[in-house]
C-alpha cells in the first residue's frame, strides 16, 4: 500500500515539474519556431534569484514575496534573451540551427555566471510551506503537496489563456501565419517576447519548486531539461496538452521503474522506450505534425 502511495506521490511531483518545464518549451517552439536550450538555465536563474531574495543568508524576504519578484525577474531575463539572441534570426531559413547555437551559448553563459555569482556550494531555498502532511500513512512534505496541487491549476490557467482569451489566441496565431498576424494588427515582436517571457517565468517557477525540495547548484537545470526533452519528444511540441500528458506519464514510468528496476538503469530504460516509440510513431504520441498550440 505504502509503495503505491510512494509511487503515486513521486509520479505526481516529478510530473508537475516536467509538465511545467515542457509546456514552456512547447510554448516557445509553437510561437517562435525555435527550441530554447537555455530553458534549463532559466530554471536555475529563477531559483537563485529567489534564493537571493528569500534565504536567511541573503535578503531574507518571506518566500511569498520573493516568489513573484523572482518570477518577474525570470520573465524579464527571458524577454531580453529573446530580443538579443533569437529575434535577430527570425525569418532566416536556418533560424532553427542558429537558435540552437545561440541558446546553447546562452546556457553556458548563464550557468557559469551563476557559478561566478553564487559559487559552487549547494544551497537550499526555504520551502513554500514547512512541515509534512500524512497521506494514507505516508508522510509527504507540505512543499511537495503544494506543488502537486498548484501545478494543475497553473496549467489549466495557461490552457484557458491560450484557448479562451484574445491575447492567448494571438499567441497561437503568431505561430501559424506571421503576415496574417500583422494584418489583423498584432504586435508580432511583442508576442514573441511574451511567449519567451511566459516560458521563462514557468521555468523560473519550476526552479523555485525544485530548489525548495533538493539542493540547488549551477547545473541544477540540466537534468530536468533533459527530462523535458524526453517529454516533448513523447508528447510532441506542437500542442500544449501533449507535453502535459507526456510529463505525467513519464514521471510515473520513472517512479515505477525506479522502484522495480532501480535508479541506475531507469535512464537507459527510458531512452530505450523513447527510441521504440519514435520508431513506431515518429511525431510523438499525441502530436499533430504542424506547429500549433492547444
Amino acid at each position: 500500500m505504502s509503495t503505491i502511495v510512494d509511487i503515486v506521490m513521486s509520479g505526481l511531483f516529478q510530473g508537475s515539474l516536467y509538465a511545467m518545464i515542457a509546456v514552456g518549451l512547447a510554448l516557445v517552439w509553437t510561437t517562435i519556431g525555435v527550441f530554447n536550450f537555455a530553458h534549463g538555465v532559466l530554471m536555475t536563474v529563477g531559483a537563485y534569484i529567489a534564493w537571493q531574495l528569500a534565504s536567511s543568508d541573503a535578503l531574507g524576504l518571506p518566500i511569498f514575496i520573493a516568489l513573484p519578484i523572482a518570477l518577474l525577474a525570470s520573465a524579464a531575463i527571458g524577454l531580453l534573451m529573446q530580443a538579443a539572441i533569437v529575434r535577430p534570426f527570425i525569418g532566416r531559413p536556418d533560424v532553427v540551427l542558429l537558435a540552437v547555437i545561440t541558446t546553447l551559448a546562452a546556457a553556458s553563459i548563464f550557468e557559469n555566471g551563476t557559478l561566478l555569482i553564487w559559487g559552487p556550494r549547494p544551497m537550499q531555498l526555504p520551502p513554500l510551506a514547512a512541515g509534512t502532511v500524512k497521506i494514507m500513512g505516508i508522510g509527504i512534505s507540505a512543499h511537495q503537496l503544494i506543488i502537486i496541487l498548484v501545478t494543475p491549476v497553473i496549467l489549466a490557467a495557461l490552457w484557458f489563456f491560450l484557448t479562451r482569451m484574445r491575447l492567448g489566441l494571438a499567441l497561437r496565431a503568431v505561430a501559424q501565419n506571421e503576415d496574417a498576424c500583422h494584418l489583423v494588427g498584432l504586435n508580432v515582436a511583442a508576442l514573441y517576447g511574451l511567449a519567451f517571457g511566459l516560458a521563462a517565468a514557468l521555468a523560473g517557477l519550476a526552479g523555485i519548486f525544485l530548489g525548495g525540495f533538493t539542493f540547488m547548484s549551477p547545473t541544477m537545470g540540466s537534468e530536468p531539461l533533459s527530462k523535458a526533452l524526453v517529454v516533448v519528444i513523447f508528447g510532441g511540441l506542437g500542442t500544449i496538452a501533449g507535453p502535459i500528458f507526456a510529463a505525467y506519464i513519464i514521471a510515473f514510468f520513472e517512479a515505477i521503474s525506479i522502484y522495480f528496476i532501480g535508479f541506475y538503469w531507469t535512464p537507459a530504460l527510458l531512452f530505450a522506450v523513447l527510441i521504440l516509440t519514435l520508431m513506431l510513431k515518429p511525431e510523438g504520441l499525441f502530436s499533430r505534425r504542424s506547429r500549433s498550440l492547444a
Partner: peptide, 20 residues
C-alpha cells in the same frame, strides 16, 4: 491567397479580427 491561421476555428479567427 491568405491561408489565415490553419489551426484556429472560424470563431477564434474572427475574435482575433477584433484585436484592434
Amino acid at each position: 491567397g491568405n491561408r489565415l491561421f490553419p489551426d484556429l476555428t472560424i470563431r477564434e479567427t474572427l475574435r482575433l479580427g477584433a484585436f484592434p
